[in-house]
Amino acid sequence: MFIRAYLRASTKEQDAKRAKSELIAFANDHGHKIAAFYVENESGAILVRPKLMQLIEDAHKGDVILVEQIDRLARLNQADWDTLKRMLSEKKLSIVSKELPTSYMALQPERSTEFMSSVLQAINAMMLDMLAAIARKDYEDRRNRQMQGIARAKAEGKYSGRRKDIEKRKIIASLLKSGHSYSEIQGMTKCSRHLIADVAKERPKMLSTH
């Protein structure tokens, strides 16, 4: 069994490797070792993340993706969550999360019966969908609170604006270089066409610093 651990944090200020030792211990407790780690600092609300996409590309049929929590894997809207599930399903990849005991069955070398296996798989799929929905709701609630805070700061004359998202701009630049259309990039990164156009003007400079 080949286990690939995925660790993610939203910002550079957060330590994406924080849970590495916990995942190693978790795998050991279930009689396994983690064969590969994929670590990145990207928003879970974006489907196309470099290390996540690399993990899926590297994975072989039947591999296991191990995460600390489902929100480390995704805080996606429903359409993107369905897309990610389809990408995983095409390679028959299983998601195992420390927070989801029903997912542990993927770490068992043998299943008791075909019927029980089917039942547990159905329950696990339902629980994954529920946790993914909760993660998205939490993300949207935090965004709403942030917008409310910005609105108050603007009203009080204390808002100084937001610095450019350098990492997102680099991703957009790379996608432009790969020949993706504006619409495709919008769908992948959840950004505005104005931002894509802005990055297109700066693309040579940005790619030279990637």
Score class of each variant (00 low, 15 high):
43 S>V: 02
139 Y>R: 07
191 C>K: 00
2 F>E: 13
84 L>T: 02
135 A>M: 03
67 V>C: 13
80 D>G: 02
162 R>L: 09
14 Q>G: 06
7 L>M: 12
9 A>C: 10
137 K>Y: 11
186 Q>W: 02
37 F>V: 05
12 K>F: 06
120 L>C: 01
87 M>D: 10
89 S>M: 00
34 I>T: 08
123 I>M: 11
151 A>H: 14
62 G>M: 05
56 I>P: 05
188 M>Y: 15
186 Q>E: 14
49 R>S: 02
174 S>R: 14
91 K>T: 05
108 Q>L: 08
109 P>V: 00
153 A>S: 13
70 I>V: 15
17 K>V: 12
136 R>L: 06
167 E>K: 12
60 H>W: 07
191 C>T: 15
163 R>K: 15
198 D>C: 00
28 N>W: 11
158 K>L: 14
188 M>N: 14
12 K>S: 14
21 S>W: 01
167 E>N: 12
88 L>A: 04
17 K>W: 08
209 T>C: 09
49 R>H: 03
121 Q>E: 04
142 R>V: 00
136 R>A: 08
54 Q>A: 15
66 L>V: 06
49 R>T: 03
38 Y>H: 04
61 K>H: 13
70 I>Y: 10
119 V>Q: 05
74 A>E: 10
32 H>P: 02
147 M>N: 13
7 L>T: 07
160 S>N: 14
186 Q>L: 14
